[in-house]
Simulated scan of single mutants.
Amino acid sequence: MSAEVISADDLAALRDSVVDLIARGGGSTAVRAAIAAPQRTDGQLWAGLTEIGAAALAVPEELGGAGAGWGSLSAVVEEVGAALAPVPLLSSAVMATGALMMAANNSSTVPAELGDLVEALASGERTATLCLAGETSWDTPGVSADGGLLTGTAHYVTDAEAATDLVVLAGPGPHATVHVIAADSPGVEVVPVATMDPTRPLSRVRFTEAAAEAFPAPADLLPRLRDLVWALLAVEQVGAAAAALRLTVEYTKTRKQFGRVIGSFQALKHRMADMYADVETARSIAYAAVDAIDTPAGAELAAAAHVHCSEAFSHIVAEAVQLHGGIGITWEHDIQLYFKRAHGSAQFFGQPVDVVAGTPL
């Protein structure tokens, strides 16, 4: 399932479309309204993104998608990350769809039910999320499967409140099995949880002998999925880090101290130059990781991207808050949302410290 090459001009046009869509949807005002809504999701923006084909970009044509690959989807992920838009792009178009595509590649003939769901996710007709993590780790599924019935609790489930379907990676055993179940099925309970980062809603999903469709999965599903998520998450972090830098530069152009705008002070210029260097090095390794997906170098680059981009994003927002001064820690200013996103995403799908220590997830 090779991806079609999209030209640089087409990618630029795609980025412009996403940026325009976010701006017309209300930008920061819409983000704040969405995180206070019942499902904590901007449904209108998600509908617009699926209408322009964002969810279909990485899906092969034989499964109802555009066949443009993960690199093309990255352009959308970066701009959505820059806006902190609370839409199920990472959860549905990357995590859930990625797991289903890996299961599809494991079969000589794609099961009709699996193919139909991937196509529905690509079109935006349905939305899914991934249920995997146990209470303390992403490398041990929190849900077990026995005779087609799911029991247990998946933690840190993203966008579950807005999902129509759940893609469950279940144990026991060293290899996870893939299961699909409607979010409103009997035996399924979605429990929203409070989060430090309000722009990425998380839930616990409890399964009590819930009957789910099972599909064959490759033995290396978990590490391959981890590499995919880390690579695309790194791109999202780059988008948010670049946006935090832009906010900081604009603020220092208007804030005055001692009769001068603070952006004219050489010490602050140097700090912002360092922030820019962090953004660009993070961008380089993030896109290198995306390009290496499903190659021998993929695992190493994905881990490096997760570590470097998490650290770079955290450093950038720490500097941004300091350069904003007191207003940077108030709810009224958006920079605090980027600070929270940085620290939340650094722990997503496994902590960087675990990567350095050699822990699988």
Rank of each mutant, 00 (worst) to 15 (best):
D139G: 03
A68Y: 02
E62W: 02
L84S: 09
H308F: 03
L57Y: 03
A212H: 07
V193P: 10
Y287K: 12
A154C: 06
V19W: 05
P201T: 08
I327S: 15
V321D: 12
V157E: 03
L90C: 11
A120L: 05
I181R: 04
A303P: 01
G26V: 02
H315G: 07
D146M: 03
I52R: 12
L14D: 06
L232S: 09
L84M: 13
E213L: 10
D139Q: 10
H155M: 08
L232D: 06
A56D: 10
A12S: 15
S91T: 07
S185L: 01
R255N: 06
T252W: 00
V229Q: 08
A212V: 03
A112Q: 14
V193C: 01
A104R: 02
L169N: 05
S108Q: 13
V353D: 14
L84F: 02
A304R: 13
R15I: 00
D220N: 12
D274W: 05
A219F: 03
A99K: 02
E61G: 08
H315C: 08
T109H: 04
I285N: 02
A23I: 07
V77T: 15
T127C: 07
D20N: 14
G350D: 10
A211K: 13
A68L: 09
A120Q: 14
R271W: 06
K340V: 00
D159A: 04
R341C: 11
A75P: 00
S144T: 15
A55I: 05
L11S: 09
M95Q: 15
A342W: 09
T153C: 11
E119N: 10
A289E: 10
N106S: 15
E332V: 14
M101V: 09
E213I: 03
A56K: 10
V279E: 14
R204M: 09
Q351C: 01
H343M: 06
R24H: 12
Q336H: 00
G298M: 05
A3I: 07
A273M: 01
P218F: 02
P216L: 05
S144M: 04
A182W: 04
G69Y: 10
P86C: 08
V80L: 08
R200F: 07
P38W: 01
I327Y: 01
G25H: 04
V191T: 14
R32P: 11
F349Y: 13
P216V: 07
A305W: 03
E125D: 09
L166Y: 05
T153R: 12
A219E: 15
G147D: 10
R224Q: 13
M102P: 00
D165Y: 00
V317Q: 06
E250D: 15
A162F: 06
A13E: 13
G187R: 11
L150E: 05
R226M: 04
T151D: 15
A312Q: 12
A277M: 08
V290I: 01
Q336F: 11
Y338L: 10
I52Y: 07
S314D: 15
L49T: 04
V355G: 00
D165P: 02
D227Y: 00
I6G: 03
L14R: 15
M196H: 14
I329A: 08
A299E: 12
A30F: 00
E79C: 06
M275C: 15
S345W: 00
A103K: 02
A3D: 15
V157N: 05
F207D: 10
V190E: 13
D16I: 02
E311I: 00
L225A: 03
M196V: 14
Y251M: 13
R24P: 06
E62R: 15
P360K: 11
A13Y: 00
S28K: 11
G67L: 08
